[in-house]
Design a protein around this nucleic acid. Sequence first.
DNA 1: TGTACATCAGTGAACGCGCGTTCACTGATGTAC
DNA 2: TGTACATCAGTGAACGCGCGTTCACTGATGTAC
Lengths: 207, 207
Amino acid sequence: MSEQSTFMKLRQDEREVRKQLIISAAMTLFDERSFHEIGMRDIAAEAGVSAASIYRYFPSRDDLFVEALIQDINNIEGELEKRIGEGGSLDELAIAVVDYLIDNESTFQMMCHFMIRGEVNERALKKFNAVQRYFLNMFDEALKKAEGAENIRFFTHAFFASLAGVVLTFRNYPGKSNEEKRQYMHRLALHIIKKGNEIIDSDGNIN
Amino acid sequence: MSEQSTFMKLRQDEREVRKQLIISAAMTLFDERSFHEIGMRDIAAEAGVSAASIYRYFPSRDDLFVEALIQDINNIEGELEKRIGEGGSLDELAIAVVDYLIDNESTFQMMCHFMIRGEVNERALKKFNAVQRYFLNMFDEALKKAEGAENIRFFTHAFFASLAGVVLTFRNYPGKSNEEKRQYMHRLALHIIKKGNEIIDSDGNIN
DNA sequence: TGTACATCAGTGAACGCGCGTTCACTGATGTAC
DNA sequence: TGTACATCAGTGAACGCGCGTTCACTGATGTAC
């Protein structure tokens, strides 16, 4: 029994490794083009397996993408913490988030995909919701460090939502170079958060 | 020549009427389900014509959708002005915008579609960019009335982007009723714009 | 050591379907002379 | 008043293709006895 479970565990570990390989392949492709344009056959080719194999590890395309999203968000967590560091300011955090959303186009698009949804399967959606919560919790922590406020959930929501909106709206604004757009989004982000933190200590009620 | 041009004009007018019929059919469907789920055949059936006919009036699906978007935004303009009225406050405008984005799901989704894009044809994209500019100009006017500030373009951008982000992020936030979500988005919107208007008179530079 | 059986990774090929778009054609309406 | 021709709205049917997903099968590895 003990030996068998060890064996099972090994097998399970290998499974995880292969799953990881597929996710990594997907993420490699995300850097090249929009996730809408990436099919199961593309990911399979990148990972060096057949498309059918992917279905041994993920029940559907959306499920695979959600897991990739989780990975991506895990990656950013460390990065954000690095950029904020111990004495990082709220401004720095905002800029870091905007840059992240700009530079990880597919991640951003996937987030939009699941947030706007309308036809995503229940299972994948549940996973996404968990990621979303986790993601926002992460900001809670970061914002606590940067601001030291108490009831922060409401502020976190306002913070993240408005930054996402900035990137959504100006990511492809015509007639500007990418660098100009980035600068402009930074300015917008700083402008928007400039005041929000002043009433952060309230419980967020407005009534 | 004069008679012919009159005739041509009549014909042209009829063409416009038919175009309008197709757009109206599309907009009727938008109230029922997500625009992603609406195909050319659906729109054709709703308009009482064949799918092939649509291509006599619109070069592509995206072009049709952009024109529908234009109509929809034209509709909202009057509505917003009504809600803001002469003495409408900035708060009222923000609430109105959030409600609009919530209640016109397809419009919002189409905006996201074109803003995130990646595979939309050039022609449709140009039209969309024109709409977007027009839309933001509209806010400039509304905000000028509500706030009376001068250099308002930057503020308009921050205003609209953050509200769009709020709706994007919380439109489908799990575990809440629709009414709760609406209330919550209102609170977020009010929180976010609360301070922005104080430094509205600056030129928006941060440096 | 050998045989029968279970488990599971992996796959090429095909399924199935949706869906945007095009084609070849009909029919109505107007113009030229 | 009549005939030949041009213009254009409208359409049923098909094209074409992408793409997520499933199927039937192979082969390797481990277990039971």
